[in-house]
């Protein structure tokens, strides 16, 4: 096959933009799965919920989707905190998170998806904003603003989380909670409270990721399922709980997927993440930057 150079360059550029967005989707899972050891497979469900909220408010009141998601942060944070409380009381406290906790999140994912189908139907929905449509050309490379704006927002979000986690007491406590709960208690921090904050944060991040998603592509309720493989592949490849690792893995997956889509057709793209996940599990389960 002859690979034309500017097609390749464009595929890589698009992959980087896509990868930064994947990093925003994965950031929440990196916190919940990577740091708290809560296998929140319902995460993509909350992302799609965020998309639909952004869509609903954007269409009815004309508010920018990213702004909507930032305004919605407290709501999703509270939702996340509530879910953690239920999860803690019903499963973690009784030591049943392995089987029933997983089934619980699977049920949540499923209920969100079916509820969205019932309310909005299975049609693709999209938002309107000034930056959807035009693109910037730099030399050979074509950068659609539709991808560039979410990319910048995703990187800003990712940076903010990284600073919060490494520089503040609560952030460091979140990193500590999965390693040694007793030591954390000796530092006068309640592990359950820290986990609740962290889980709320991870769901709040999902709302922002959802708004970015609906800017990038039209959304329908079952789109979330395609992200399960991607999100966990990135999380595992990056090394559980490592934020820089997550970013590198997300960019990597974005590039590989974009190249696959360009040269073999977009219908093969969902398989890439899974292949990557299996390869990682088989050869380097600790991930790129894993401990």
């Amino acid at each position: 096959m002859d690979i034309s150079f500017d097609l390749l360059i464009n595929a890589i550029a698009a992959g980087l933009l896509l990868g930064a967005f994947y990093a925003a989707v994965t950031a929440g899972v990196s916190i919940s799965f990577g740091m708290l050891d809560i296998v929140n497979i319902a995460h993509p469900g909350f992302v799609i919920l965020g998309s639909y909220l952004a869509y609903f408010i954007n269409i009815n009141y004309g508010v920018d989707p990213i702004l909507v998601s930032i305004l919605m942060l407290p709501v999703f944070y509270a939702l996340g905190a509530l879910i953690y409380q239920v999860y803690y009381l019903s499963f973690e406290k009784r030591g049943q998170e392995a089987l029933r906790g997983l089934a619980f999140f699977f049920g949540l994912l499923f209920v969100t998806e079916v509820a969205l189908i019932l309310v909005f139907g299975v049609d693709y929905r999209y938002v309107e904003a000034a930056y959807i449509g035009p693109s910037i050309h730099i030399g050979l490379v074509d950068l659609p603003l539709r991808m560039l704006v979410p990319c910048v927002a995703a990187l800003a979000l990712f940076g903010a989380i990284q600073i919060f986690i490494t520089r503040t007491f609560t952030g460091r406590a979140i990193m500590a909670v999965s390693q040694d709960q007793l030591a954390l208690q000796l530092m006068a921090a309640d592990p359950i409270r820290i986990k609740r904050i962290a889980f709320g944060l991870s769901i709040a991040v999902a709302a922002v990721a959802g708004a970015l998603l609906i800017i990038i592509q039209p959304v329908e309720p079952s789109v979330g399922r395609e992200y399960i493989g991607r999100v966990f592949a990135i999380c595992v490849l990056g090394g559980l709980g490592s934020m820089p690792g997550t970013l590198i893995a997300a960019l990597l997956l974005g590039i590989v997927e974009s190249i696959t889509a360009t040269f073999y057709g977009p219908s093969w793209a969902p398989a890439v993440a899974f292949g990557l996940l299996l390869l990682t599990l088989a050869f380097r389960p600790a991930g790129l930057l894993g401990r």
Binding site: G229, F232, A233, V236, L278, P285
Partner: peptide, 12 residues
């Protein structure tokens, strides 16, 4: 990991 892999298996 097994649970996550089976979830992704369906999509692939």
């Amino acid at each position: 990991f097994f649970a996550i892999a089976t979830l992704a298996l369906a999509v692939v």
